[in-house]
Design a binder for these strands. Structure first.
Lengths: 336, 336
DNA sequence: GGTGAGTTTGCAACCGATTGCATAAAGTTG
DNA sequence: CAACTTTATGCAATCGGTTGCAAACTCACC
């Protein structure tokens, strides 16, 4: 800490000739304090560059005004959550800063079960933001048991009550399929993330709805799944091409898988988009720099981040559970 | 916070039939306390899942055991610092966790000048980690004036004393150029980051040294600069190709610029690596998934992160200023 | 001028830890 | 067994805020 002479509210109180409590109330803009006193105290504080002591305040108020962003370790072996998580963190940071909350990044081992206590019971953070990641359900369970406030990115489990923000996966799937239909593709494949994930099921439902609306049949042969990793995208498209060589388009559930799939398609000697059109999902920053630039479903990631921050804080203050879904949009580039 | 009945050291004290001070000392493993008392208190603490209150401890000890990772807002328009920063954060997080420090991510406006006080004078953080980013020198100045402890990724300014961790840019430049020479390239270009940055100067020096060692002349025409952004990479290679059409290789100062450059090269109708070989810098995770997979200079990013964390804490505790440089290595893939 | 309401301010307790100093208990020594 | 260490524990102050309650002051009104 710096060595200035005026660093506590007691110092300010002395200078202003009032008591500590008056200073505290004045700085918190309490209606109990007279306007002129407030003004004097405020100008004194500004003049001496006074900064209130956070730990003391936190101790006294029994809240930390800090939110934890829960992530797993970053590995070379990139998962969606990483790049996606980075982009969403920007939005979260802005949302939190606006409400004067701090952002703590914590890095939890997927098999650790005590982390919630370590951060919550100690009063280090007031709540948690959970991203789609390995072991998410474990984390949700741990948080529910600890009675710790949290919000998740993604669709909440059926009968559980907690806050969430998610993309409109149904529309996302529909938009992707409709676009492929509109550009004249006949045999449109679907490469999903893990089939047990709600998000993936919704995207599939959107895809199927679009096909039906266009009077097409759903063909199970054209449906494959991966796990959101690059390699799984390449594997899935290879299986698909083997089963259904006449494929002329594919909707892939993540940009990373889609980019890997495009490479695999070329290795099979086919062209993107001439032979096979590809639509991705997320619109990560790399999507526009892929080869060819990826047509994809954009999730408004900064908005998602802002909402995660905002709604969690809302919940902390009012106890109101929100489950919102944010719109998606189609971004047409060269791959489809 | 949870509503358990035993949440403070006073509770433990009551259960153990000792005083608060004894509990505090026992939990901190003070030599003043007898072994059997310690054992009893510890087992009591474990049994009741006791977690010490962080704000109280911080207030009392006048330190937060929290480090701020300073970043600017994340934009769609990705800069190296972003992706690079994400990867390095992993290492930092590990290094901090090992010493039981928390990681706060703060997001500062490039023109804000009061942020150091907001975080340091308030006792929210004990120190800062600064990445290469816009306005870094402003930030360094602000931190020095506040007398706040910090460490930077990058080469420190000549006569200033502060901690730093940096890659071995001289070797990096040399390795890149030597490799291009070894694979038989004759007209090797250099695309740097901003020429005023030390790192860039060192990489250029390494590149020039390698050429000289091979008995080649340095040709200023083959040297161009960008600003680490993707678009600047594309622009730079275009200028270079115009000035020096006979170019057959180029060493680019960042993977992101290199990937954009490869796209630009193809648009000019040339092939990578057949016509023009490309070597990047950093070895970000996307490097191996680019088209073609990028040959690049790997910085050991996780290690860098760990050292940033470790050396900053070291400085906090002992006041020892360290300036370390970590080794780089050449990773050969398809682009050169 | 006394009374009551309304407005400002201060006192002192409290949040939950750490720590210097005093003290009590146990052990050593001549 | 007295005197003197050594070892283990407790008391009470402290860190820097917040807040319930009492007190003082200002006015208006009868």
């Amino acid at each position: 800490m710096s060595n200035k002479s005026v660093r506590t509210i007691a110092d300010i109180a002395r200078l202003a000739g009032v008591s500590k409590s008056t200073v505290s109330r004045a700085l918190n803009d309490s209606p109990l304090i007279g306007e002129d006193t407030k003004a004097k105290i405020r100008s004194l504080a500004r003049e001496h560059n006074f900064q209130i002591n956070a730990p003391a305040r936190r101790l006294s108020m029994k809240q930390s005004r800090t939110i934890a962003f829960v992530t797993h370790a970053y590995h070379k072996d990139f998962s969606v959550a990483d790049l996606f998580g980075l982009e969403i963190m920007g939005g979260i940071s802005i949302g939190l800063a606006r409400r004067e909350y701090d952002l703590l990044v914590i890095h939890v081992d997927p098999y650790d079960t005590k982390w919630t206590h370590q951060y919550f019971d100690t009063g280090r953070v007031d709540g948690f933001i959970l991203m789609t990641a390995t072991r998410k359900q474990n984390h949700v369970k741990a948080l529910l048991e600890t009675h710790a406030p949290f919000i998740v990115w993604g669709i909440p489990q059926p009968r559980q009550k907690y806050c969430s923000v998610t993309g409109d996966n149904l529309s996302g799937g529909r938009l992707a399929a409709e676009h492929l239909i509109a550009v004249g593709r006949k045999r449109i494949g679907f490469i999903g993330g893990p089939p047990e994930e709600m998000e993936v099921q919704h995207r599939l439902a959107g895809y199927e709805a679009a096909l039906k609306d266009a009077g097409r049949d759903i063909n199970q042969v054209l449906i494959e799944y991966g796990d959101f990793s690059n390699t799984s995208g390449a594997d899935a498209i290879q299986r698909l091409l083997k089963k259904a060589p006449e494929l002329d388009a594919v909707f892939v559930n993540s940009d990373l898988m889609a980019i890997a799939a495009m490479d695999a398609i070329r290795e099979e000697g086919r062209r993107v988009p001439e032979d096979i059109a590809v639509v991705g999902y997320d619109d990560l920053s790399i999507a526009e720099h892929s080869n060819p630039p990826l047509t994809t479903i954009r999730q408004n990631i900064p908005l998602a981040g802002k909402l995660l921050a905002q709604n969690l804080i809302e919940y902390l203050q009012t106890g109101m559970v929100t489950n919102v879904s944010i719109p998606v949009e189609l971004v047409v580039r060269k791959s489809a």
